[in-house]
Write a protein that binds this DNA or RNA. Sequence first.
DNA 1: GTAATCCCTCTAGCCGCTAGAGCATCAAGA
DNA 2: TCTTGATGCTCTAGCGGCTAGAGGGATTAC
Lengths: 138, 138
Amino acid sequence: MNFPIGELSKRTGVKVPTIRFYEQIGLLPEPPRTESNQRRYGKAEADRLNFIRHSRELGFEVEDIRALLAMASEPQSSCHQADSIARSHLAEIDRRIASLTALKGELTRMINECGHGRICDCRIIEALADHGHCSTEH
Amino acid sequence: MNFPIGELSKRTGVKVPTIRFYEQIGLLPEPPRTESNQRRYGKAEADRLNFIRHSRELGFEVEDIRALLAMASEPQSSCHQADSIARSHLAEIDRRIASLTALKGELTRMINECGHGRICDCRIIEALADHGHCSTEH
DNA sequence: GTAATCCCTCTAGCCGCTAGAGCATCAAGA
DNA sequence: TCTTGATGCTCTAGCGGCTAGAGGGATTAC
C-alpha cells in the first residue's frame, strides 16, 4: 500500500509515462501526493490499471474503457451496455480479420507470381500498379 | 493531360488534401504550376498515385512504398528487394491475423459467459479485471 | 455580374502513447 | 555524512497517416 509510480508500473506492466498519460486523460484518478509532490498509489489503483491494461490488450479503445470502468463502478446496474460494447468490438475485430485475410490472399498471390527476376518483369510491382489485377476489392 | 488536383483526385480516388500531403512527404514529386500557382498533373502522376493508393490499401507503410517506387523506377534491377518487402509485410499481416483471432476467441468467450444480468455478476467486466481468466496470452 | 465551386497555404487535431530536456528527490553504500 | 545513481516531477514535441478548418484567391457556369 502507498507505493510510488514505478512500483505501480512494475505491478501492472504499464510504463510510467503511460500511467501519467492515463491520469491526464482521466482514465486514472489523480492520486494523493507526498509532501515532495510524488504520487502514491494503493491496491485499488493497481486493480483499475490492470483492468485498463487488459482492456487495451483486448483492443478496446480508451472511450470504451472509460464506459466499462464507469459500469464496473455501478455493480447493481444492468450489464447490457457492457455486452453491447463487447459485441460491437467483436464485430469490428471480425471486420479487421476479414479485411486482413483478403489482403493476405492478394499478397500471397503477388509473391507467388513473382519470378525473382528483374523489376521490369516483377509481378509484385505490376500488381501494385494496377488494381485491375486483383481478385478482391479493398 | 495537364489537369488540376481535383481531377487527379477523381481519377485516383485519393482525396485532395491527401495528395498534397503525399507531395509534402515526398511520395509525389512537386508538379508544375500554372501562372496562378495551381498544380497541374499528367498521366504519369496519376499512375504513380494509383500505385501509392493501391499499396496503401494493401497495408504497405509509406516507407515501404517509397522503396517500392524507387525500385519501380529502375526496371533493370533485381526484384529481390520488392519480394522481400512484400514477404515481410505478409508476415506482419499473419501476425496481426493470429493476434486478432486470439482476441476474437477471448471476446467471444467473455460475451457468451455473460448472463445479461447485473454488472456485479457480469463475466465481461470480471474477465477484463483479471487476465488470469484468459486462455491465451496477449 | 455574381454565385458556386474550385484552388491555395497554414495551422491544428486525431489516437495512444513515447521520448527527451531539465530539474528535484530518494535510498543505499562508503 | 556524503555521494551516487535510480527514481520522481513537469513540460514540450514527436510518431503515422492523414483530416479539418480558417481565411483567402481563382475559375467557371449561368
